[in-house]
Computed example of a mutant assay.
Amino acid sequence: MTGPVRTCVGCRRRALNDELVRLVVAHGELVVDERRRLPGRGAWLHRDPACLVKAERKRAFPRALRVPGPLDTSAVRAALERLATEE
């Protein structure tokens, strides 16, 4: 692997950051940071919906992003579906 390596919060596998999407909390909402430039702590996730389900089940997002309480993942799910159709 060449380049930055990150760990998916869903499956816990390591991958190049080009294979993952970065998620951040912006204005209290979990959003996909497509340009990878938004400020704040980020969490990384494979584009695979199964990884999103695993992360939700483990309640990984609040822990990884260090925010209290649950986060709504509906915007992330929609973004992953959109990214899957673009590929």
Rank of each mutant, 00 (worst) to 15 (best):
A26T: 11
A78K: 13
V31H: 02
A64W: 07
L80S: 09
A50V: 14
W44N: 06
V9G: 01
M1L: 10
E87R: 15
P4R: 14
R41M: 05
E86P: 03
A26Q: 15
L83F: 15
R63C: 00
A43V: 04
A78W: 04
R35H: 10
V9Q: 03
D33Y: 01
T73F: 09
A78F: 04
V32S: 06
A55F: 04
W44T: 01
D18N: 10
R41V: 03
G42R: 04
V32N: 05
R37H: 10
E19F: 13
D72T: 06
T73L: 09
G28M: 08
N17C: 00
R63F: 06
H27C: 11
R82T: 13
A78N: 09
P70L: 08
W44A: 05
A75H: 06
V5C: 06
G3R: 00
P68S: 10
V5K: 11
C8V: 00
R47F: 07
V24C: 01
R77S: 13
V5Y: 03
A64V: 10
A64C: 08
D33W: 00
G10V: 07
L80V: 11
F61Y: 08
R63A: 12
D33R: 02
R41I: 05
L65Q: 04
K54Q: 14
A26H: 13
A26S: 15
A55T: 03
A43K: 02
F61N: 00
G40W: 12
T73A: 13
A78V: 11
R77L: 10
L65I: 06
G3K: 01
L38I: 03
V31Q: 05
V5G: 06
A50W: 08
T73S: 14
V9S: 01
F61P: 03
A79Y: 07
D72N: 15
R36G: 08
K54F: 09
L30C: 13
V21Q: 05
H46I: 03
G69R: 09
R22H: 02
A79E: 14
C51N: 04
M1D: 05
P49A: 12
E34S: 11
R66P: 01
P4E: 12
K54Y: 08
M1N: 07
R63K: 13
